[in-house]
């Protein structure tokens, strides 16, 4: 008799833990062929709130780590992901119905993207800082600091898409709450398992699965969220209403892209600089 395999329960990833939705809800996720793949947790507004709390709690510690340390942690995520690449290739093939070559390309790109961003952690400051020659006896420098807690609506690719939006946010010292791809959420939760075992402190990345239309407005209007990335929002009306809600506390908003994004391309630094604030410090020079 064939062995009965042990199926995984996909839950949320909040504060380094994997809780079910407090609402007790879940939704059916089918594979590319329309067969049941698993149930995903259907996060509620309270889960979103808890995730923000976790992200805020993690922000102080994460943002005050040295850039070198953050760099190593992000690189560690790449290492662990590399070790589990077969699992991700298989999940991507099942969930999205892509060829082995395409699934492998996505996993390769996701790993390489993490490595690319890991290297930025201790360089972006040097690229965007300035020593300002003010007209007076003052030492004056401007340096970037992380914006804070960033809410993200992740694009469709549950691995590469999510990595591409999350890695730059955390590399720069921010923490985030990500709403995973609604249609293909499972791989994002598996990615959460990778993060949970990669020296990444709990709460730096929090992954919610469920309805974007339901959860995103709570994040957009949340007064303890400092920025929102609308990359994965495909409905222009929803995007506009989220941007309007984000104005309540003047969140930094990254609007949804104009068209399809080719995530295989090497990105620029804009996803890093979007979540950085410039701090300028003055001090007199004298004896």
């Amino acid at each position: 008799m064939a062995r009965i395999d042990v199926k995984k329960t996909y839950k949320l990833y909040i504060g380094g833990q994997f809780p079910r939705s407090e609402s007790g809800r879940s939704y059916v996720v089918n594979d590319a062929k329309g067969n049941l793949m698993a149930n995903a947790a259907q996060a509620s507004r309270k889960d979103a709130r808890d995730a923000v709390t976790a992200a805020r709690a993690a922000f102080g510690g994460w943002s005050s780590r040295t850039a070198y340390n953050r760099s190593q942690v992000v690189y560690r995520i790449a290492e662990v992901l590399e070790g589990r690449r077969d699992q991700f290739v298989a999940e991507l093939r099942t969930s999205e119905g892509v060829t082995s070559a395409r699934a492998n390309a996505a996993v390769d790109a996701a790993i390489d993207r993490l490595v690319w961003y890991a290297g930025w952690a201790d360089k972006i400051t040097q690229v965007v800082s300035s020593a300002n020659p003010v007209a007076g006896p003052y030492f004056n420098i401007s340096t970037p600091e992380p914006t804070g807690v960033v809410a993200v609506v992740a694009p469709t690719g549950p691995l590469l898409g999510l990595v591409s939006v999350v890695a730059p946010i955390i590399t720069t010292g921010n923490t985030c709450v990500v709403i995973a791809s609604e249609a293909h959420p499972l791989t994002s939760i598996t990615l959460g398992e990778v993060m949970a075992t990669s020296d990444l402190p709990g709460g730096v990345v929090n992954v919610l699965t469920g309805s974007v239309a339901e959860i995103a407005p709570w994040l957009a209007s949340h007064m303890d969220v400092n920025g929102i990335d609308l990359t994965g929002v495909t409905d222009p009306e929803l995007a506009t209403s989220l941007e309007v809600a984000a104005a309540d506390n003047l969140k930094r908003v990254r609007r949804a892209p104009d068209g399809e994004v080719d995530w295989l391309q090497t990105p620029g630094t804009d996803r890093l600089t979007d979540w950085l604030e410039t701090k300028t410090v003055w001090h007199p020079i004298g004896i």
Binding site: P137, Y138, G286, I287
Partner: peptide, 11 residues
Amino acid sequence: GLPGVDQVGAE
């Protein structure tokens, strides 16, 4: 222990 004087501010 007297308060310091900041040169730039004083000038």
